[in-house]
């Protein structure tokens, strides 16, 4: 990693948050019309529009060096928020600062210190080797040649792309191209990274390689990272903190571990019995059985009581209580509280 032996200077505004967002809003005005030819003809005369609140007043702060997962279903407002923070979109209301700058002013001093990687977009010269695009980045970001070469070569080594940088981008696989995108986006060693689905469509090995690289970049440079991803493995590997957004509003902002505690409506109780298998459906929803170990899903509030009942009524040799997988928790967050199961434990022995 570049300048690994040299301590990084503290980022501008290091005393405050690297990113500060207060009641940020973005409303898009979109045309609407009914179906059919008549509606199409009517729209020629009078065009109807409606306002869509893509981001409806979100507030959060991110400290320098923090890696935060920004989670939400499609259309939740994640990318719109990221684009406002990167200076691509002008907010409808509210405030945002990144490294002390207002992103919508698009000052060079800010643009030189941030980057945004969009997993489904290609910013490299399609017909040329990635090396040529890297050279363009060097010129645009005014990087001293020695420093540029050192950074480039270290990134190439870390991401194990070797001679691929000499192949035309059009001949690279999706994963290889993504690695080149990330190298190109980080050559100027930005202080703030906005990563929008950086591993989308990649195989597991490639995802892991990119996760490791981002973690290493953060560790060595102290960069602030705001990451959106539908792959929870990305979030679990990189983010201690997550911000969950839905319908343009923040539902949760806190430690990833606390997300399950706050929103996990259920617990998973895994139990092994001395005499092997048994029907435990009366205690909760049986979600799996593997080599005599039965897994039950029970309402979170009933977990303790169910455990007591299991221990009292059955010859238990081993029992564990776990939070559900984070994917399930996120799903529950988005689904809302209406789907929560009943929180009463049932004693089949009574």
């Amino acid at each position: 990693m570049p300048n690994a032996s040299i301590p990084n200077p503290p980022p501008e505004g290091a005393s405050g948050p690297a990113i500060r967002v207060a009641e940020l809003r973005k409303t898009f005005r979109v045309p609407v019309r009914g179906e059919g030819l008549r509606a199409a003809a009517a729209s020629l005369v009078r065009r109807e529009t409606r306002d869509v609140d893509a981001v409806a007043g979100v507030s959060f702060e991110i400290a320098p060096g923090e890696v935060v997962g920004f989670l939400g279903p499609n259309g939740a407002g994640k990318t719109t928020t990221l684009k406002m923070l990167a200076g691509l979109l002008h907010p409808t209301g509210g405030e945002a600062t990144v490294l002390g700058h207002v992103p919508s002013r698009r000052e060079s001093a800010l643009l030189r210190r941030i980057t945004m990687v969009m997993g489904n977009r290609n910013q490299l010269q399609w017909d040329l080797p990635a090396l040529d695009s890297f050279e363009l980045m060097r010129a645009i970001y005014r990087l001293p040649r020695d420093e540029f070469r050192r950074t480039r070569d270290e990134f190439v080594e870390l991401l194990e792309v070797g001679d691929l940088v000499r192949k035309p981008v059009r001949n690279l696989s999706l994963g290889e191209r993504m690695k080149m995108e990330i190298i190109g986006a980080l050559l100027h060693q930005p202080t703030v990274l906005f990563l929008d689905e950086p591993t989308i469509g990649l195989d597991v090995t490639m995802q892991k390689r990119i996760r490791t690289f981002v973690a290493e970049y953060n560790r060595r440079t102290g960069a602030t990272v705001l990451l959106t991803s539908h792959y929870m493995a990305d979030v679990q590997a990189l983010c201690k903190r997550v911000v969950v957004i839905h319908h343009g509003r923040i539902l949760f902002d806190g430690a990833l571990a606390a997300l399950a505690a706050d929103f996990g409506a259920t617990k998973t109780i895994s139990v092994s019995l001395r005499d092997g298998s048994a029907d435990l459906s009366a205690y909760g929803e049986v979600i799996g059985e593997d080599e005599g170990r039965i897994s039950l899903r029970v309402p979170r509030a009933a977990a303790a009581e169910t455990t007591t009942l299991l221990l009292r009524n059955l010859p238990v040799v081993d029992l564990t209580i776990e939070d559900p997988p984070i994917e399930d928790v996120i799903e529950q967050v988005f689904a809302g509280a209406s789907s929560l199961p009943s929180a009463e434990a049932v004693d089949p022995a009574s």
Partner: peptide
């Protein structure tokens, strides 16, 4: 000088691309 560097790089990229075809 930095802007000139950008222009020269863009020119080199354009020439390299045209040589591909």
């Amino acid at each position: 000088r930095a802007l000139l560097d950008v222009y020269l790089t863009a020119i080199r990229i354009a020439i390299a691309e045209q040589f591909q075809y």
